[in-house]
Simulated scan of single mutants.
Amino acid sequence: MKMKAGCSQLKPVVLILIFNSCFYASYQLTGLQQVCELCSGAVLNGSAVGMFCSSSAGRIDGRCCLRNNNTGDPEHIIGLDLSNCSLTHMEDLQGASTALIIDLSRNPIVNISDTAFQGFIELNYTILPQDIFCPGGNTSWEMVEVKDGNRLCEGQKNMCNQTGQLSLTCPENSLCGPYGPGFFECSCVDSYHGYKCLREGEFPALQVFGPLGASTVVISVLLWVTQRRKAKSL
């Protein structure tokens, strides 16, 4: 018979998870604000992102289209328009990892980091300067077209096999899942965890999240102290 953790063991884990969730939500909101203000101006109604936002009943915030929701969860970016922003490099857009459409056209981009779109599993439409390959390579998309000086990448492909079973590139006791254009991730199946999903049994939440919670508290305190010092110096 499988043993269950007692209530006294679970309470610290729950509190740590709640604290970490609040901290992550705050961090996520900051990342969202940064990416929406990477370029001055706002999404234009007649642009590709603007029309998508209108048809999706989204809300414009700077260069972003945000999903309207009443759940109280942190807002999610569903569209990002960074066209004509004089961008030459693109390395970090993680604040927009929930976007379905991204427009980077009319920029003198010479390089896009290989990991810039890692984790963008919802991304379905990307507009780039015609000299830039689609994220993950053109083979990571259902359709690639060069039109009016832009490269259009539509329909992100799933990098895992199409059987829905174990992927040859994932270890035993794991499943393959999409993780952005050209990327995939291997997740352990139920009751397995650890390196290459070799450990079977319940995940040791207290041992793992305990130190993580402590480090999060330290970081939060340091950030609070820094903000207080800045406020006093003003």
Score class of each variant (00 low, 15 high):
143 M>N: 13
145 E>M: 11
55 S>D: 06
135 P>K: 03
1 M>G: 08
166 L>K: 05
175 L>W: 05
128 L>V: 00
153 C>G: 07
42 A>H: 04
234 L>C: 11
33 Q>G: 00
8 S>N: 10
30 T>F: 05
69 N>M: 12
162 Q>A: 04
178 P>M: 06
128 L>K: 05
96 A>S: 12
220 S>R: 11
4 K>N: 06
47 S>A: 02
186 C>H: 07
119 G>R: 05
168 L>H: 00
11 K>W: 13
52 F>D: 00
208 V>A: 04
18 I>F: 15
233 S>I: 08
146 V>G: 04
110 V>F: 07
210 G>I: 09
124 N>P: 06
91 E>Q: 13
166 L>F: 09
51 M>T: 04
66 L>V: 01
158 N>Q: 04
84 N>A: 12
59 R>H: 01
54 S>N: 10
91 E>W: 14
7 C>Q: 01
17 L>R: 02
27 Y>M: 11
173 N>F: 03
151 R>Q: 12
58 G>D: 06
21 S>W: 10
93 L>C: 10
229 R>K: 15
83 S>Q: 01
17 L>N: 09
121 I>M: 10
92 D>C: 11
156 Q>S: 11
19 F>K: 04
117 F>S: 14
100 L>C: 00
179 Y>R: 10
84 N>E: 13
53 C>P: 05
168 L>Y: 02
36 C>Y: 01
19 F>P: 07
51 M>N: 00
105 S>K: 01
19 F>A: 06
228 R>V: 05
53 C>T: 02
77 I>W: 02
71 T>V: 08
218 V>G: 03
233 S>L: 11
160 C>M: 00
47 S>E: 03
40 S>T: 08
214 A>C: 15
58 G>S: 05
163 T>G: 01
126 T>N: 05
83 S>I: 02
145 E>F: 08
127 I>E: 01
157 K>S: 04
23 F>S: 08
122 E>H: 13
154 E>C: 05
217 V>F: 14
227 Q>C: 06
232 K>N: 14
166 L>A: 15
7 C>G: 00
117 F>H: 09
202 E>F: 04
2 K>F: 12
69 N>P: 05
166 L>Q: 07
124 N>W: 07
120 F>N: 11
158 N>G: 05
69 N>W: 03
211 P>C: 09
229 R>E: 09
153 C>D: 14
20 N>P: 02
118 Q>W: 11
114 D>R: 11
84 N>C: 07
15 L>A: 07
56 S>A: 12
125 Y>G: 00
144 V>Y: 08
226 T>D: 14
183 F>W: 15
71 T>I: 09
131 D>K: 15
144 V>R: 03
134 C>L: 12
109 I>H: 10
156 Q>R: 13
38 L>W: 10
5 A>Y: 09
17 L>D: 02
12 P>V: 01
28 Q>H: 14
75 E>I: 04
118 Q>L: 15
192 Y>S: 05
50 G>Y: 02
164 G>M: 04
24 Y>I: 03
152 L>H: 13
156 Q>G: 02
